[in-house]
Amino acid sequence: MNLHGLRLFHYVAKTSSFTKAADILHISQPAVSSQIKKFEGELDIPLFHKNSRKWTLTPFGEELAERAELFFAHEKQLEQFVQDYQLAKKGRLRITATYLPANFLIPQWTAAFKAENEEVEISITTRNSQDAFHDLIHFKADMAMYAGGLEGQREEVEWRHLFQDEIWFVVSPQHRLANCSVSLEDVIKEPFIMREAGSSTRERLISLCQTYRVSPPKIALQFNGLNEAIRSVMTGYGVNFVSSLVVKNYVDTGQLARVFVDIAPVKNIIAICTRKGEKPSPIVERFIRLCMENSKNNQ
């Protein structure tokens, strides 16, 4: 079927006027009449009853006009869908993130994003570093947010660094090392309370020991969640090696205390990751821009 002819017929039937249809379509009235006549000939079915200078739709013409109305209404919906997708107004955003950004950055940033894009569906999965990159690389997520060291970078991943934060050794205020300056060897002798194997911070601690040729610490307690590990340290037992973003408020309020170790500051890289060689969707790009703007407050 000639869709151009159907469109012309649709506007003629909708406005009951060849002249009005021509004005809407920005073409001449004779051109509309000529194209409609051609369209009618291609169908080989009469569309109009002609009586003197007046015309009315045939029964077939009336039914075709009703169906054309639905067809072009759906076309508008499709155009709006594409436009919404291009402007990141609709669609789906799947984020996989390591614990730090998932709990301390993403909640605020997704709330700001949803305020402007209510119809975008957002799902957030908290993973350790290995699992987060697995989800991204195997298309189970549209983007990953990572906190960790440079050694965690993958070749298959495009990195956008947001900012850095320090990793602190923290203990209970009642711990004998609270607010003390000590060597790495001294603090490593203490029992450590850490997250499970595979977490980037735990791997950073082991890498740090290797760099300074110190035996790795004894992991006395292991938790799948960071909050549980921090709460355990607060009771007075053990040391935790943790992002300052997570514990700064606890240190400021006296619920935890730092242990100052005589080594160069250890820092986390907070980064947004996408698949290398793949152009992110408009929704992902818009969310990344929001994150980059908001991350300036942490620099």
Rank of each mutant, 00 (worst) to 15 (best):
V239N: 01
P216Q: 11
A73F: 12
A141K: 07
V261E: 02
A31N: 15
Q153W: 11
R286T: 08
A220E: 13
L70I: 09
Y85N: 12
E190N: 04
N117C: 11
Y250L: 02
G5V: 00
I283G: 10
V239L: 04
E228Q: 14
S129C: 11
T56K: 09
R286F: 00
E79Q: 15
E155M: 09
K248F: 02
R202T: 08
V259N: 04
I106Y: 08
L3I: 09
K37L: 05
A13D: 00
L43T: 04
V32G: 03
S16I: 01
Q86D: 15
K296E: 06
V246P: 02
V171Y: 01
N2E: 04
V251F: 03
F113C: 04
P30R: 07
E293H: 07
P217E: 04
L226C: 11
T125R: 14
E203H: 12
S123V: 13
F241W: 06
N227F: 08
V32E: 03
G238K: 11
T201V: 11
P30H: 05
N128H: 06
W109R: 09
R289L: 07
W168G: 00
N179Q: 14
I219G: 03
A112T: 13
Q86R: 15
L208P: 01
P216C: 06
A115I: 07
I263E: 05
R94G: 08
K76A: 06
S183T: 08
H175M: 01
I137D: 09
E75F: 13
I24W: 14
S52E: 04
L105T: 04
K296D: 03
Y11E: 03
E156N: 01
E158D: 06
S181K: 06
K140Y: 12
H134Y: 14
S243T: 09
T19D: 12
Q255L: 10
K37N: 10
N224H: 13
V239P: 10
A271Q: 01
A178T: 05
T274A: 05
V82R: 15
N249R: 15
T15N: 08
E119D: 14
E121K: 10
F39S: 09
E40K: 04
L177T: 03
R67C: 00
R176N: 07
V171L: 02
S16G: 05
C209V: 10
T58F: 05
S52K: 13
R286K: 14
S215Y: 09
D23R: 12
L245P: 00
N227Q: 11
A73T: 14
A271I: 02
V259Q: 00
S181C: 10
G61A: 03
E42L: 10
Q83N: 12
V214W: 04
G41A: 15
A141D: 06
Q108T: 11
Q35A: 14
S183P: 01
T235S: 15
V246G: 00
N179V: 03
T253Y: 05
A257M: 01
M143W: 03
N224R: 15
Y11N: 02
Q29K: 15
D142R: 12
R92C: 12
I288N: 06
Y99G: 13
P265Q: 00
I137K: 15
E185S: 12
V82G: 02
